[in-house]
Design a protein around this nucleic acid. Sequence first.
DNA 1: AACCAATGGTTCGAATAATGAACCGTATCC
DNA 2: GGATACGGTTCATTATTCGAACCATTGGTT
Lengths: 264, 264
Amino acid sequence: MGTVSKALSLLGYFDQTRTAVGLSDFARLSGLNKATAYRMLSELQEQGFVEQTGAGRAYRLGPEVLRLAALRELSVPMLTVAREVLHRLSEATGETAHASVIRGRQLNQLAHSYSARHATRVMMDDAEVLPFHATASGLAVLAFSPADWSEAALGGALARFTPQTVTDPVRLRSLLRGVRASGISESVSGLEADVHAHAAPVFGAGEVPVGAIAVAAPVSRMTPAQKRIIESELRQAARDLTLRTGGFWPADYPASTPEKELTQ
Amino acid sequence: MGTVSKALSLLGYFDQTRTAVGLSDFARLSGLNKATAYRMLSELQEQGFVEQTGAGRAYRLGPEVLRLAALRELSVPMLTVAREVLHRLSEATGETAHASVIRGRQLNQLAHSYSARHATRVMMDDAEVLPFHATASGLAVLAFSPADWSEAALGGALARFTPQTVTDPVRLRSLLRGVRASGISESVSGLEADVHAHAAPVFGAGEVPVGAIAVAAPVSRMTPAQKRIIESELRQAARDLTLRTGGFWPADYPASTPEKELTQ
DNA sequence: AACCAATGGTTCGAATAATGAACCGTATCC
DNA sequence: GGATACGGTTCATTATTCGAACCATTGGTT
């Protein structure tokens, strides 16, 4: 791994539970020497990618990332378009809709939209990391990713979040086959209890998934009729988001859900 | 300059007029060898900071910057808070309000808010670079920055955007003294003809400016009464934004505009 | 108040990784 | 069909990064 990659990978240790990280923590987390980590952080700081809080202590992300994100939005208006698509999706289904994007080996929450139809709804946070095996979004991405890539994602130890989380790789591979056949993934209480989620992949420039779009509802509201509406709307929304962000919608993408029930 | 800084500085060549840049362009712009630029771009690509469009051509910013920006917002909710403050500011003044942040040696537009009160209004774009000497925001930042820093910003050749642009360093230094005394900067048609802008600095963790907040109006609407309202609202908004983003408001910041007129 | 364990930051010889001139293969344009 | 520009690749040379050990401070414990 080159020096630049090592330095940039330090930024990967920031997440929503860890918005500031100290020098020693960086060294421990990355396995790099403290001096090495320090030199890299200094360069990142010079360029505005990180900054130190108050009296020279822990590092947090710097203002430069805001500028870059604004420019990314200018060339690929993913966030803007996603917000629009999600708004329509949550209105049409009456449930919480959300979109996520792949970043390296992780799937990150990008944006979400609530519906005002019901008093109870599934709540979301942006910038969260979604586990591939335990979310509908993750399964949607894996199902349409190159085999070696999705196998790698299933390779490590798979965390159990609820009693319903599927952690058996054999069973997960079977689920993915079902998703490839129907075009829509599902996860019932895989990450959070009492949540039934559906998702479809969003494709990028090379017919390869760049993320997913999903609808999350309380299990109690998931009737067969509601399921049909969600799947149909989701399919449309995923295609819409793909095309409007410069992606290619695969010609062989399954057009409608086959008869067979594919619940997890 | 270290390897990491060189690689990151490549990202600096993206701007709103140049959202995609080719390998040879990077080499030319940066002065780096083509092979060097290529290797750095490959590493940036691996980490998701850039990606290649379609059939392997020019580079554009990648999805990773979106994740980082979301996390930056989580630790320093500048954008969220700025949007709120700007909304109130544009409502209170009836004019376009906008906020900018310092990034390295540049001042970048961050967010803006229009008022619906008038049919004519000053239009804005985000992610734009604001010249220090020709904007009220730039002057507000320079006036309260360390002397060596603001002198450096006035050092290079100062572009003339309109016949009214002030480019004489001596005259600019005198303007900055006025801003320090009043706390509010002004620029009449300095960047765009027919625009009268007021601005105040936003401070960060070390009582040092991190950006500015401004109100831009057509010159025809700038009556003495309107000027008083804008200055008062601006002062309040700048203080609000500073405190709500973890900054320190200087105890010696001038509390109200002195009698003397300080028009450019 | 002496001690200990962590912290952020610094040094310098050894080892590794970055460098750049030259070179491909391809596409585009007179 | 020749010239030019493009993205990408190679490999010997060399400059840069690496890391063990070392400071100076801080905060907690006895």
